[in-house]
Amino acid sequence: MTSDFSSSNSNLWQPNRQASKRVQFAVKTVFAIFALVSVATTIGIVLTLVFETFEFFREVSLWHFLTDTKWTPLFSSAQFGIFVLISATLMTSGIAILVALPLGLLAAICLSEYATAKTRAIIKPILEILAGVPTVVYGYFALLFVTPLLQTFIPVQGFNALSAGLVLGIMITPLVASLSEDAIYSVPQSLRDGSYALGATKRETIVSVILPAALSGIVSSVILAISRAIGETMIVTLAAGQNPRLGLNPLVPVMTMTAFIVQVSLGDTPAGSLAYKTIYAVGMTLFLITLALNIFSFWFVRRFREKYD
């Protein structure tokens, strides 16, 4: 290594190549282990949920879990109809997406197509603030501001799915807006030009050309928002109530899956008890629903993404 390249001052250069390589190897190994922590997290989540859920189903039959019409796991005559909780979750998330889809999508269109660069620079940080508000604050807002407000003109109870759903919708609006805006903004200018050159107005260009071109991104943003709404905890726990009730009446208290997990966690529930296992069975259900949504979104984007070079 040295002799061939010998020059008058080659002895001035004595890099410790061996040590450098050893450091490089050590760093690489340690960082690889760090990266694997994320994989371990996934495995941990799946194993934990599967194990406790399995334990749960040794005491409660899957049939009862899916067909009972009541959710009374803490009573002596316990019933475990998961659809009682799912119906509440669907209701709050459904209301949320009814708010967030139009609001978020229109805001995204405005930011990408109508707002000037200057206005964008003002509005985007405001949306970021909205996205950064802790969920417990939204819970406060839903319970102590929105519900009393609603009560002045519709007969809602103190806890209800409507006000939780509305505020949940506000919470996920920035998510829909910012991800949809990315998708809309990245539609190539050439498509806009093509549409204008055919005598289309701005709105026609947006509705008929840009939105279809951005569809996969918009759908994935909406699915991500739904999945966030389904997994959200504090708003529904505080504002929607703690009353397991099957049905889709948004004016009365209900209990979502996440609210149930909180309810049990607030008490002192010893490990190994049925209540303890139950929160894992509910968690598993929640996990599977959000996973299914993620897979669907992944599939949809792959299937419908338009390739522009």
């Binding site: 991500l224 389904i230 997994g231 905890t233 968690g283 949504l293």
Partner: peptide, 8 residues
Amino acid sequence: LAGVPSII
């Protein structure tokens, strides 16, 4: 993981 609810 980014899609897993925080309560999980």
